[in-house]
Amino acid sequence: MTTRRHVLGFAAAFLLGMGSVASTAQAQSKDLVIFAAASLKNALDEAAAGWVKESGKPAPKISYAASNALAKQLEQGAPADIFMSADLDWMDYAASKSLIKPDTRVSLLANRIALVAAKDSTAKVDLKSGVDLAAILGSGRLAMGNVDSVPAGKYGKAALEKLGGWDKVKDKVAQADNVRAALLLVSRGEAPLGIVYTTDAAADPQVKVVATFPEDSHPPIIYPVAVTKDSANPDAQAFLTYLRGPAAKGAFEKQGFTVLNKAASSS
């Protein structure tokens, strides 16, 4: 009898717990969830704060990571209402997997990549044809996002290949999971040089730009944004509209982004 009572008590507690979990999940589903490239953090945090103030809506839940990681999470069923990528390739990937609403896709921002060093570094680099970063690094390493998947890493590798400097330095690269992680390696003094977006460099007072890569040395750095296919949150389109407006433009330009705000199909 005691055992039966315990079983019934456990079952009741379990069902009550499940009800609580369901209620929590239902409440969380009302949150506006955004998957955004790590390099957007400072600018998007400011833009989101402005949207909250203007709309009176709850603050969106923003998950920052490398664009490739976020696209894969979406593919695996992670719930999000908006996807903001740091390159066209990963937004194209999301589109090819029917993970976004194509008619909401916009090419919102442009960026640049730069070579950075610690703020007290005396390194001098001319990013021209034949540049030899390995000689400048000595025993140190070049911090970059993963060159096969992270957009900033892909842009950096493409630029060095175009300048004829990749083969000389490829064995000295410290690859990070995202561009902010690469920035941190330089900021902490764990790598003497790194390749990041100019906007990342502006966000960290512990680093400085040593040189900016020529724009024609790599594909254009475009940040597309779109509402995800499964989003049923009415605030998703409202927030996207806000990002395309003058208030958000100020937040992005403050961090060094160029605002494009152009509707775009797959590249």
Rank of each mutant, 00 (worst) to 15 (best):
M1Y: 11
M1A: 12
T2F: 06
R5P: 00
L8Y: 07
F10E: 13
L15K: 06
L16D: 02
L16F: 12
G17P: 05
M18G: 15
M18D: 04
A22V: 14
T24L: 07
Q26I: 12
A27M: 08
K30S: 11
V33A: 08
A37Q: 00
A43Y: 10
D45T: 14
A47T: 13
W51S: 08
K53G: 13
G56P: 03
G56R: 00
P58W: 08
P58T: 02
P58E: 11
S63N: 15
S63F: 08
S67K: 06
A69I: 12
L74G: 01
L74W: 05
L74F: 02
E75M: 11
P79I: 09
P79Q: 11
M84E: 11
M84R: 02
S85L: 04
W90L: 09
A94S: 14
K97Q: 14
L99V: 05
I100A: 00
I100C: 00
V106P: 02
A110G: 13
N111G: 08
N111S: 15
A114L: 00
T122P: 00
A123H: 13
K128H: 01
S129N: 11
S129Q: 09
G130C: 09
G130I: 10
I136P: 11
M144E: 15
V147G: 06
D148L: 12
D148K: 09
V150A: 15
V150N: 13
K154L: 10
K157T: 04
L163E: 10
G164K: 00
G165T: 08
G165V: 04
K168G: 11
K168F: 07
V179R: 00
R180E: 12
R180Y: 07
L184Q: 11
V186L: 12
G189I: 03
P192N: 05
I195Q: 04
V196P: 06
T198P: 07
T198V: 09
A203K: 02
Q206C: 02
V207N: 13
K208Y: 03
V209D: 03
A211C: 05
F213W: 01
P214S: 07
P214M: 06
D216H: 08
D216L: 11
H218E: 04
P219E: 14
I221S: 03
Y223M: 15
A226D: 03
K229Q: 14
D230K: 11
S231N: 09
S231C: 14
P234Y: 08
D235N: 10
A236N: 12
L243M: 12
R244D: 15
G250S: 10
E253P: 00
E253K: 01
T258W: 00
